[in-house]
Write a protein that binds this DNA or RNA. Structure first.
Lengths: 146, 146
DNA sequence: TATTGTTATACTCTATAACTATA
DNA sequence: TATAGTTATAGAGTATAACAATA
């Protein structure tokens, strides 16, 4: 089990290392980029949803979104259905940044992913999903006292 | 390609989420835990090596190691072979913490990893290694200007 | 009562660049 | 000249807990 954990950590680390250098050209920090990518190609979502899809907790999220809003990349709007909720979505400028940065970023990473055979990518995807679901179950077990 | 990237990110995220809650019991921050685990079962290593094995850059590493040293978990020692280098290693107390935290941590994660069949783990490990090597190559290409 | 997001505090991490001491 | 580690600075992320508004 330890070897596969090590490879998971090292692989993601390599992914981060390759991504971060590229991302920094956008002038965004990794968490900010994370939010912009999460909001890309959506009609916006609540803070709660953003927190679930990233590893950023609510107190921190307020600050990260503040900085993105100050730069005109995202906007807050009241939820029409729940008075407690706030929707966050990309502004037109945020959309432009998303497309300007994200697509070249994928193009930059592509050679690495394409070096795996098609069946290897499918296989990897399937195994990662299995493992993720099992890990999520583990977190739930811990939460209700593992 | 996007689906496998998404699964890689989500899987590692699930791994982090499951780990962090558990790690925090040790009183260490994630970067500190990262260093302690990296030093575990070794005779120590230089700052440079530590930086290569984690995503922590040298300026930051000084501070992280300072905090671990202040808590008596690691010690610095001059390198016998290179006067510029400093070796970092776990103190006996650091070793004890490593064993007290790391092994239960593995035991906690085990059910998730064991939910994959043995051949699935081998397969996953192999594909992750392939991808990592390709991603590392991509970073190198960028560094010498890709 | 529970949930959503904000605020406040204190600390840690981070990038960056200048610095020292060795090589 | 290049490399290993430190220092200085300024900013960003983080955990935590208390808070207001709404459900």
């Amino acid at each position: 089990m330890v070897p596969v954990i090590r490879e998971l950590a090292r692989c993601y680390q390599a992914f981060q290392r390759a991504s971060d250098a590229h991302i920094r050209h956008s002038g965004l920090t990794p968490p900010q980029f994370d939010i912009v990518v999460t909001l890309g190609n959506t009609d916006g979502m609540t803070f709660k949803d953003l927190g679930n899809r990233t590893l950023i907790t609510k107190g921190t999220l307020t600050g990260v979104v503040d900085r993105l809003e100050a730069r005109g990349l995202v906007a807050r709007a009241a939820s029409p259905t729940d008075g407690r909720s706030t929707l966050v979505k990309l502004t037109p400028e945020g959309e432009r940044l998303f497309h300007r940065v994200f697509e070249p970023h994928l193009a930059f990473l592509a050679p690495a992913f394409e070096s795996l055979p098609e069946c290897g990518r499918k296989e990897l995807e399937k195994r990662l999903r299995q493992l993720r679901l099992a890990l999520e179950k583990r977190s739930q077990d811990l939460a209700r006292q593992g």
